[in-house]
C-alpha cells in the first residue's frame, strides 16, 4: 500500500496537486452554497424591512 502513496517518487508533487484541486472543488461547493444562503437571508431582511415601513 505504501508504494501506492510513494507514486514512483513523485509523491511530493502528485499529492499536493490532488489536494489542491480537491480543495478548489470543495471551496467552490462551499462558497456557492454560502452565496445562496446569504442571498436568501438578504432577500428576507429586505422583505421584513419593506413590511416595516408599510410598503
Amino acid at each position: 500500500m505504501s508504494e501506492f502513496f510513494h507514486m514512483g517518487g513523485y509523491a511530493a508533487y502528485l499529492w499536493p496537486a490532488y489536494l489542491l484541486t480537491f480543495a478548489v472543488l470543495g471551496w467552490n461547493v462551499l462558497s456557492a452554497r454560502r452565496a445562496l444562503r446569504e442571498a436568501r437571508a438578504e432577500a428576507r431582511r429586505r422583505l421584513t424591512a419593506d413590511r416595516e415601513d408599510g410598503a
Binding site: 456557492a32 452565496a35 442571498a39 438578504e42 432577500a43
Partner: peptide, 23 residues
C-alpha cells in the same frame, strides 16, 4: 446553478415572487 440562484435573488430582491421563495 447554485450560484445562479443566488445571483438571480440579488437582482430580484424587490420582486414579488421572492416572497414565497424566501420566507
Amino acid at each position: 446553478l447554485v450560484r445562479l440562484r443566488a445571483e438571480v435573488l440579488r437582482r430580484e430582491r424587490g420582486a414579488a415572487w421572492v416572497k414565497e421563495v424566501v420566507s
